[in-house]
Amino acid sequence: MTGIPDSPGTASARAPAGRRGWWRRHREGAASLANAAPAMLFLFVLYLLPMIMLLAQSVEGGTLVHYQKALTDGLYVQVLVDTLLIAAYVSLACLLLAYPVAYFLSIAPGWWATVGIIFVLLPFWTSILVRTYGWMVLLGRNGIINRALLDSGLIGAPLPLLNNTAGVLIGMTHVLLPYMIFPLYAVMKRMDRGLLAAAEGMGASGWQVFRRIYFPLTLPGVLAGVTLVYVLSIGFFITPALLGGGKVTMVAVLIEQQIRTFLNWGFAAALSAVLLTATLLVYLVLRRALRSNMQWN
């Protein structure tokens, strides 16, 4: 301890007056920091440290060749762009589907809300692989949906719902929907319904109440849900491989291949770092776009 003059335990005794004033001013902050220390250590060891090790691996040998390849090779750039686009489509689809579901859950009377939430959670108890195969049965050329449509004469030839991007989007949206529903449900449940009545009393129509009051107030949930779904989408692996018929390549597949098949961890780390950066950028842009609407939060 004696070697650390600024450590909290000794500072007040020995520090000059100016510093002591500083210390008093910051004491509360420091105390809460001390309280948060175990959590910070936890986060550091479990998340930050592996991340730093990963980044270190990507520049192993003091070279940036891995990054050069990841950022200039058409293959990796295209897969990265495809991945980000698919993640964006999935986020949008989840948002459009989850919003009304979360809304009805938030206003449903107790028992119905419980049942509804159980239904939302139900898929979590089924393996993602099983659910993916389930979609194959539903969406295939001879799947239940195409059969029904063909038999009813609505279509003449099977719709291409599987083994393409459409199949990937449907499957991923299904898997990720709960991650969108719950953040939305949380903000909607907390919503002060008095505000809606107030707006209505001030002459707003139902649509205006939604657009001007309800929706903006759910934006924190929207941002949380979109972020969650987007980030999870980017790492998706088995669903795109199975429902995309091998034609939809996500960057996680390439990263996995580098690690598992070629033991090229340096390049895999560089790809991961690029993906992480791209994800963070998208998140920051999204946050900034919604910022003006969320200062109140």
Binding site: M136, V137, G140, R141, N142, N163, L242, G245, G246, K247
Partner: peptide
Amino acid sequence: VAVWWTTGAQSAQLLIDKE
């Protein structure tokens, strides 16, 4: 090639489903 399969289970199922 309608599907580039990934898992063994998939390769068999594709014929069953007539994909």
